[in-house]
Amino acid sequence: MVHPYAILGFLAAVLPLVATPGASLALLVQYVTDHGRRQALPVILGTVTGLYIHATFALAGLSALVMHSSQAFTAVKVIGAAYLIGLGLWTWRSAMAPARAPARRYLPVRSDSVYTQALLANLLNPKAASIYLTLVPQFIDADQSFDGQILILATAHALLTTLWLLAWTVLIRRASRVLRKLRFKRTAAKIAAVVFLALGIRTVAT
């Protein structure tokens, strides 16, 4: 078991990373604004699944291999950056769609598609993987079960992320009248697109 103080310390350390606007929040704003609060669930589930996959990789030692192999690490960065840039360009193009074609903009969106986008946005982010290589080990007791401790910390990370995205969902829904306006939707989509592009370019540059 992880000591409660260790869990609190880990959450305090990871909170700034969770609170930093990223791909998950951009997806949340985009889909909740356009399709309602139900789309928050696949975004959250996709993001949380990505966290558990990173934790599993760290547990299996695969993340360590990627982080210590410059070629493998570069490959992950390039793939993740390409996905984020592509998502940003697609989002920007959607925001610029003519207003005379509302049917296209309001077609029902498949939850599994949103889930996949959120999963890939998290999974292809090397910075998320590095959390479980650089941050998690600082809160693990060598005398306790390594597997169980990573699972507990990953669950704490997932719960914190879920609460953060749920809080944003409530905030977005409270502003529903403003968010329903086409002008705001386009502005929000453009902001999301810029976030995706910036994250992609930053991934390549670092």
Results as ranks from 00 to 15, higher is better:
residue 88 G to S: 05
residue 16 P to D: 08
residue 195 V to T: 12
residue 103 A to I: 02
residue 184 F to R: 10
residue 163 L to S: 04
residue 126 P to V: 06
residue 168 W to E: 01
residue 180 R to V: 15
residue 103 A to V: 02
residue 197 L to P: 01
residue 83 Y to H: 06
residue 184 F to K: 09
residue 138 Q to S: 04
residue 164 W to Q: 10
residue 158 A to N: 07
residue 142 A to F: 11
residue 171 L to K: 12
residue 24 S to M: 03
residue 186 R to M: 06
residue 193 A to W: 11
residue 82 A to S: 12
residue 160 L to F: 04
residue 77 K to V: 13
residue 94 S to N: 01
residue 143 D to S: 15
residue 132 Y to A: 14
residue 168 W to D: 01
residue 65 L to A: 14
residue 189 A to F: 08
residue 193 A to M: 09
residue 182 L to P: 03
residue 70 S to W: 02
residue 189 A to C: 05
residue 108 P to T: 05
residue 98 P to E: 06
residue 149 Q to V: 06
residue 54 H to N: 09
residue 133 L to S: 07
residue 30 Q to Y: 07
residue 157 H to E: 03
residue 130 S to F: 14
residue 158 A to F: 11
residue 155 T to A: 11
residue 190 K to G: 15
residue 105 R to L: 10
residue 96 M to V: 00
residue 53 I to T: 10
residue 70 S to A: 09
residue 178 V to M: 12
residue 129 A to N: 12
residue 97 A to F: 00
residue 51 L to N: 12
residue 75 A to F: 13
residue 21 P to R: 08
residue 71 Q to L: 08
residue 24 S to N: 13
residue 35 H to P: 01
residue 156 A to I: 11
residue 4 P to L: 11
residue 126 P to R: 02
residue 198 A to W: 13
residue 185 K to C: 05
residue 187 T to I: 15
residue 37 R to Q: 05
residue 182 L to N: 07
residue 96 M to Y: 01
residue 74 T to F: 11
residue 94 S to T: 01
residue 55 A to C: 14
residue 49 T to K: 00
residue 123 L to E: 09
residue 75 A to S: 12
residue 192 A to E: 02
residue 142 A to V: 10
residue 199 L to D: 09
residue 139 F to R: 01
residue 126 P to Y: 04
residue 61 G to R: 01
residue 62 L to H: 05
residue 167 A to K: 06
residue 69 S to Q: 05
residue 95 A to W: 06
residue 119 L to C: 04
residue 172 I to C: 00
residue 99 A to M: 09
residue 87 L to G: 02
residue 42 P to R: 07
residue 186 R to G: 08
residue 148 G to H: 09
residue 23 A to R: 00
residue 11 L to E: 13
residue 148 G to Q: 12
residue 172 I to Q: 00
residue 170 V to G: 08
residue 121 A to G: 08
residue 53 I to N: 02
residue 7 I to V: 15
residue 86 G to R: 09
residue 74 T to K: 10
residue 101 A to R: 14
residue 151 L to I: 14
residue 5 Y to I: 00
residue 92 W to V: 03
residue 30 Q to A: 06
residue 144 Q to I: 02
residue 162 T to H: 00
residue 56 T to W: 13
residue 67 M to Q: 13
residue 122 N to I: 13
residue 196 F to T: 00
residue 62 L to Q: 05
residue 50 G to N: 10
residue 195 V to A: 04
residue 74 T to R: 13
residue 81 A to C: 06
residue 38 R to A: 14
residue 126 P to D: 05
residue 66 V to C: 06
residue 174 R to A: 08
residue 148 G to L: 15
residue 18 V to T: 12
residue 128 A to V: 14
residue 153 L to T: 11
residue 153 L to I: 08
residue 100 R to G: 00
residue 57 F to W: 15
residue 93 R to E: 01
residue 162 T to P: 00
residue 81 A to D: 10
residue 125 N to M: 10
residue 171 L to Y: 11
residue 191 I to T: 10
residue 53 I to W: 09
residue 154 A to S: 06
residue 69 S to V: 09
residue 48 V to R: 12
residue 195 V to R: 02
residue 84 L to M: 15
residue 171 L to C: 10
residue 3 H to L: 04
residue 19 A to V: 15
residue 200 G to I: 03
residue 166 L to C: 14
residue 154 A to I: 02
residue 144 Q to A: 03
